[in-house]
Write a protein that binds this DNA or RNA. Structure first.
Lengths: 386, 386
DNA sequence: CTAACTTTCTTCGATTTCGAAGGTAGTGAG
DNA sequence: CTCACTACCTTCGAAATCGAAGAAAGTTAG
């Protein structure tokens, strides 16, 4: 029952995540004997994956010889797609961006066109930043819709016309000629937050409040996918005076009342024009009363839904990100509802905070998932055996 | 990063769960070389943990030599505690009960008295059934309240006076002189259902509808504990005409309206006396209209709460057990609400079924958890090294 | 500065694990 | 019945891993 984390890839992951900096660290964390670690590290240095970089800080004895990922160890290509926009990055194996770019990109042109364009732009980006000499070890893409983890297909996306049942992972693998990973954007964000800012907490809910409402779930330290729809909270029915029909066909979904897009619509009806959800944050900051009131109301609705989920899932932290997360009254309302209504046992150690990782959370998450994936075991083992 | 499943315990688990019946099976499933498997199996037979039992069915070649757990491999002591009652069992390493007993047991007498009594009865049970010669490898107890997985303490139980913050696991370890495991009863039930009846499904919600409402969660094939309160759905606030205060201090919790105890109270107010929740099932089966109506209403409330959780958690199956689960209208109402309100993506492959494992689900679950626990690695390795 | 202690890393013989090859025991077709 | 084939299991030399001991390189206290 040799589980995933054996072989040289385990050592690469420990160094990439920053958990280990020396051979001694690796021996402690990997469970291998110090002698075996020395041998394997030697091989990884020969393979060009590790580099020795001077000495680290002493802990009361001989100073460790610091191990880092070699530059030549390679990079991943990563893209986070929105409805009208894509954020591209070339990242190192640890997920750290080496080059970033934002491009306009209409997801409604369909999967082939979108992917081909993204791949092209990523190649250009790598070339322009002098990264063309580095091996590309994989490509990861985040999509604003559900992805079946078993097949890598997009399933029933509500706002991605032409994408239903598209075999995204297979297409990307073939078209880019690289190991490929396709994942829901909120899931990538959850992984990024977890690994970058909350590595000690094993149960996390990460809310993405933008023009839509997304949620990624980390359970027992690993991304919880379910059948691809896990984390969906946007189509829970809520109670409200006025009825609003949601794009999913049901009335009064949370998303139809409390998403950035819904708030923009509601404000427009009051004569306040809003282009992007982030504009609402500005209005709130400027003290426009209608905006503040609308945001408070949304917070109450979201909080109501979350109470049941927090009791049920019992996370260590609830992290709120996305472009709306800077609206202070939104967060404090959510926090207030949850602390008031949830079980004391569930909220006793619960942290409710805004994103610490920031805008690049999804990018980082994609890098981590790529390195963790069994796909990476393959090229790492191949690299070690010449 | 040698994860848990290495060493001889991995082979024991594969045989105990029935996944492997021969050395060849073990080689396939464990990832070890056939030669290594042969060696280790030899050791396990010498240690008295495995036995060879004739030949299995051919798959087109030489017939395998069937491996089973030896009788002398030992047993676990297991108890599932309710408020006024305990179900005790001596089970083999696979979790199969070798001896069962039901005893009266008031949990309100406090932890020490309860545990001492349970341990005593289990010893007597083993002796009476001729199992006294077998080594006892561990003890597992299910409690009707939250248990902190980190400390093994009972935390904020609503109906276990005198148990708050009691170090249940430590007390049991010392008092029984055995590796001990303490877990919430719904969690044990979830593990039992998962392993016994739904081994292929990795994401499960298991509802226990009795005098209370409990829920255990299997995520990615493993029990999801959170901080100990995970799976709690009984204190979600629901909407209703009449307000009922819950024992937790909040008004209109699900449990206050839809639990077996709540239904019994409601029926009593209509002049229909009900002793045990199971009596309600009988009333429904007999076609008493007030009972059917009350049960339908409860089903609607429970279903409402579950819609949000099913969307969020996206399980493969929702399994309903407990003494109320035989009330057909209850199940069909829950099923109807969920299929109507949840996302098609979440319900497309969702099974909503009553327990297949039956009353012993918790007993089986405790056995599985004990064998899976790192505690078992220790005695298995000790047994192999003489 | 010296001596005692800590931590890091390597060396080397003992042990474990692997993997290829072969023996064993069955099935099924002609 | 024979022969080809398949699956199960073991044998045995090669390779990987371990672990104890020690070398290397510091820190700290006197």
């Amino acid at each position: 029952m040799r589980t995933r984390d054996d072989g040289p890839a385990a050592l690469v992951r420990l160094v990439a995540t920053g958990h280990a900096e020396s051979r001694a660290d690796l021996a402690r964390l990997s469970g291998l004997a110090p002698s075996s670690v020395s041998l394997r590290v030697e091989q990884l240095i020969d393979a060009g994956l590790f580099a020795e970089e001077g000495a680290g800080a002493s802990r009361g004895g001989r100073r460790p010889r610091r191990l880092t990922l070699a530059r030549e160890a390679g990079v991943f290509f990563v893209a986070d797609l929105g409805a009208h926009h894509a954020r591209l990055a070339v990242v190192d194996l640890a997920g750290t961006p080496l080059a970033l770019a934002d491009i306009a990109c209409e997801i409604s042109v369909g999967p082939e066109g979108t992917f081909d364009s993204v791949i092209g732009h990523l190649r250009v980006l790598a070339r322009d930043r002098g990264l063309a000499d580095l091996p590309v070890r994989g490509i990861g893409v985040g999509l604003p819709g559900p992805v079946d983890p078993a097949t890598g297909q997009v399933v029933s996306p509500s706002r991605m016309p032409g994408w239903n049942d598209f075999p995204a992972r297979d297409y990307l693998t073939e078209r880019a000629g690289l190991p490929a990973l396709v994942e829901n954007d909120a899931n990538l964000m959850a992984v990024g937050e977890h690994r970058h800012s909350w590595p000690g907490l094993d149960n996390l809910m990460v809310l993405k409040l933008g023009s839509g409402i997304g949620c990624g779930v980390i359970a027992e330290g690993r991304l919880h996918r379910g059948r691809g729809a896990a984390g969906d909270i946007s189509h829970v029915r809520i109670l409200s005076e006025a009825t609003v029909d949601c794009s999913c066909g049901h009335p009064d979904c949370l998303e139809a009342h409390a998403s950035g897009a819904a708030l923009a619509t509601a404000l427009a009806a009051q004569g306040i024009a809003v282009g992007h959800p982030a504009d609402i944050v500005d209005l709130v900051t400027d003290g426009v009363p209608q905006a503040t009131s609308a945001v408070r109301n949304a917070g109450r609705l979201i909080g109501d839904v979350l109470t049941a989920l927090v009791n049920f899932f019992n996370p260590d932290a609830l992290v709120i990100g996305g472009s709306m997360s800077n609206a202070e009254p939104l967060i404090s309302t959510i926090r207030g509802v949850i602390y008031e209504r949830c079980l004391p046992l569930a909220t006793r150690n619960l942290e409710i905070v805004t994103s610490r990782t920031g805008r690049d959370a999804s990018i980082l998450g994609a890098g981590h998932l790529l390195l963790d994936s069994p796909l990476s075991n393959e090229w790492i083992e191949a690299a070690v055996k010449q």
